[in-house]
Design a protein around this nucleic acid. Structure first.
Length: 420
RNA sequence: GUGGGUGUAGCUCAGUCGGCAGAGCACCAGGUUGUGGCCCUGGGGGUCGAGGGUUCAAGCCCCUUCACUCACCCCA
């Protein structure tokens, strides 16, 4: 038997209804805040991510599904959405009409990591990106939108963590101070952190090894090194969040793995997913648009990890499942033929109708109707054909009414409405 | 990429010392000749993840491999 690829999964009926509901809620929420959907391709030139995410990151170095196309171009399944949205913003000069543009996109991303809880090789994200606004108010609004999203969808075991990463003016000073501190503390760091010290010193800050946490307790904080502009920006974000009544926690150890982030950074974390505790994350990336060849426009955005979100929401797929409105139990060839015609007619009316094609006994059809969760059963056999009237049974109340075959669709429609 | 745990019916899982492949749920049929859920009776379902080895005999022991899972790493 051919099985699905490692780290990939099927989202089956019975769970997909929850995904649909989450996506629907996200669309409606984001559109209410002025975001427009943008659909970007799943394949991109690998270079796009090397230039945006950073050549030295694990994502680009060893996690991308990259391969040469037939013409030799190195292309890749997108590992994230932001770079593509930025590319599109630049390529189509979407800034020309108005530099302020707000987009959202929902779809699969691909990273060839070792699968574990809440981590798949194909995973789904809801992304929102805002271009052209450098006001800290928009940073806060994005976090506010996330908070509303989580609340609306009954994901309560979450907390917003925020931090500032500074900007190209102040970050170098912090990195320098951090590097000095790390050199002094080298003895106490774990082996991974000794390696990180050179390559990605910011990452040492969020190491989970207890000895490192201890060693880093007195590490310099980026927040003490922010330049006046970055500091004002961060303060304004916090003030706005308080005004929006979004509860948050300043976490000076919150860093981002991607090179392009500046200033505000945030994550929505949960205690329900073990090691994969980030359900959503994002931040400001003011220098990326220009770095990718576009105008010097600021930007800020977030991504929600859908696979993780479905794990932590209290909502259940079965609450959104559509059971059949009616099951047509037919006996005999002529009845079955009529039942099929009716089922089609019901479908056109938006009434979900199921029936049995195998010529089973009434008992067996009733059993199946019950199992499918059909709210009503329409019974037709020799007797009904003769009397030109069928039986409509309400499966909850067991009430049965006789309905003439003429004009049956309209009559059933009325009955179904009445019973609601 | 590294390390641990787990793979037996559609699902959840037993399977003792190596000796006929099991249970519950689900499914199908009948009891009830045209009315679901409860009950009773019967039935169908298995490459014991895969491949190899040891043995008279392997679900069980050995080797290899794959998948799932958790953690590291990284990240949503």
């Amino acid at each position: 038997m051919i099985q699905l690829i490692r780290g990939f999964k099927d989202i089956l009926p019975g769970e997909v209804e929850l995904w649909q509901h989450i996506e629907k809620t996200a669309r409606s929420l984001l559109e209410d805040f002025g975001f427009k959907e943008i659909r970007i391709p799943i394949l991109e030139h690998a270079e796009l991510f090397a230039r945006s995410i950073g050549e030295d990151t694990d994502i680009v170095e060893k996690e991308m599904y990259a391969f040469p196309d037939r013409n030799g171009d190195l292309i890749t399944l997108r590992p994230e959405a932001t770079a593509s949205v930025v590319r599109s913003y630049i390529q189509h000069k979407l800034y020309a009409k108005d530099p302020v543009r707000k987009f959202y996109t929902i779809g699969p991303m691909f990273r060839r990591e070792r699968p574990q809880k809440g981590r798949y090789r194909q995973f789904y994200q809801i992304n929102a990106e805002v271009f052209g606004i450098d006001s800290p108010l928009i940073d806060a609004q994005l976090i506010f939108i996330l908070a509303v999203f989580f609340k609306r969808l009954s994901a309560t075991e979450v907390k917003a963590h925020i931090n500032s990463l500074g900007c190209p003016i102040c970050r170098p000073g912090f990195k320098e101070a951090l590097s000095v501190f790390l050199s002094a503390a080298e003895e106490e760091l774990c082996s991974d952190c000794r390696r990180r010290r050179k390559r990605n010193p910011l990452r040492v800050l969020d190491c989970k090894v207890p000895s490192c946490c201890l060693a880093m307790a007195d590490a310099p904080s980026i927040l003490d090194h922010l330049c006046p502009e970055c500091n004002r920006h961060f303060e304004a974000v916090k003030n706005a969040l308080e005004k929006f009544k979004v509860s948050f926690e300043v976490d000076k150890r919150l860093v981002r793995g991607l090179d392009y982030y500046t200033r505000t950074t945030f994550e929505i974390k949960t205690g329900l997913l073990g090691a994969q505790n980030a359900v959503a994350g994002g931040g400001r990336y003011d220098s990326l648009v220009k770095a990718l060849g576009g105008p010097d426009q600021p930007a800020v955005g977030f991504a929600i990890g859908l696979d993780r979100f479905v794990e932590i929401t209290d909502l259940k797929a079965k609450d959104f499942a559509q059971d059949p409105d009616i099951f047509i139990a037919a006996m005999g060839e002529k009845s079955m033929s009529m039942a099929f015609d009716w089922a089609c007619a019901f479908g056109l009316e938006g009434i979900i109708a199921e029936l049995d094609f195998a010529g089973k006994s009434l008992k067996s059809q009733m059993k199946r109707a019950d199992r499918l969760g059909a709210k009503h059963v329409l019974i037709i056999g020799e007797k009904e054909l003769e009397e030109k009237a069928v039986v409509l049974r309400n499966m909850t109340t067991k009430e049965q009414v006789i309905i003439p075959i003429d004009d049956i669709i309209e009559r059933v429609k009325k009955e179904l409405l009445r019973k609601h």
